[in-house]
Design a binder for these strands. Structure first.
Lengths: 177, 177
DNA sequence: GTAACTATCTATATATCGATAGGTATTTTG
DNA sequence: CAAAATACCTATCGATATATAGATAGTTAC
């Protein structure tokens, strides 16, 4: 029996990824979860607090996923491929990246969220750089920037065109040299 | 010729690029331009119509800019650099790409806008591919996808970190061989 | 076993949303 | 000139936004 707070985060996450954080209301959220809007305010005092909780949760989940990949997948290229697959999966669900979305809406999110977004992408870049380094690239710092940028940008284009394969195509370039 | 309509588009464009299309209201727009919200409805019957007008205008402007660059800048690499500079300029104005923003908010825009966004990015990719082809790349089709993806993604990261140079760094990879 | 806490509800407040009706100058056109 | 179109306005609608107060039932702590 999933608790209400988790359900709220699940639905809010999906709505943010599909329509944007400013593209849904507490009423939308309440009706989907089956509670009243006042109950959402009980768990997340303001909508800004909900945004913060969303970023924190996805950040934690991704850091954990990075750790699991490091421990379980014995090849850096395959580890990177696993992340690419996650993003390809978004396309089929008509989703953008949650932190990419909030970064797009940057000027309408709280300073606290802005800080978290910077940390999220910094952590992602660091992890990607580590993989690229293991793959033998000497310019892993700059290449990781290119990797993450292409990942976000190609996801935007892939969803727009309903073609998940655009992500892999765009990233091929980054792995060349 | 009333320039109210132009002013409305100018401000709406900036608000979309900074806060997202769902991040501002007709009242925000009206107050900045100095008219009443009913006047906005006179020029753009619904907010969806405003979105359409925004995409159409920027699409026309960019197609025109591509043509001017082709006519006036005698080197493909410099022509590409000119586009990169436009995106670097966005960072200093805390803007994202207008069509990138609406693509992020994809699930909350009208089917008409979705179609226009596809055309916008298709035209951009075609033009970039032409430049890359002139630069001697034989994989210009795939490389243009990588270029545009990196451009959009790195703009997201650049604004997030207030560092316009991230765009050029990310794109260096694409121009390598 | 009662006091405090948790998680929800009802009910409401205040503000704003996009949108429309209808009026009024000004400009254009036949 | 008169009719029509243009570009605003005032006034207002119904719906929805985020948010709060206070009641209630169930659970936990002392």
């Amino acid at each position: 029996m999933t608790d209400t707070k988790t359900k709220l985060l699940d639905v809010a996450e999906r709505l943010t990824q599909t329509k944007g954080f400013n593209g849904f209301s507490y009423l939308d959220l309440a009706e989907e979860v089956g509670v009243k809007t006042s109950s959402i305010h009980y768990h997340f005092k303001t909508k800004a607090d909900l945004a913060l909780a969303l970023v924190d949760r996805v950040h934690g989940a991704h850091v954990a996923a990075f750790g699991q990949l490091d421990a379980q997948v014995p090849n850096a290229e395959n580890r990177l491929a696993a992340i690419v697959e996650v993003f390809e999966g978004y396309v089929n669900d008509d989703k953008f990246c949650l932190c990419g979305m909030l970064s797009a809406e940057f000027q309408s999110v709280s300073p606290a969220v802005r800080g978290r977004l910077r940390t999220y992408f910094q952590d992602m870049r660091s992890w990607v750089a580590k993989q690229l380094n293991e793959m033998g690239f000497t310019d892993s710092d700059n290449r990781s920037l290119s990797f993450v940028s292409s990942l976000e940008g190609s996801l935007l284009l892939a969803r727009l065109n309903g073609d998940a394969s655009l992500i892999g195509s765009a990233l091929e370039q980054v792995k060349q040299n």
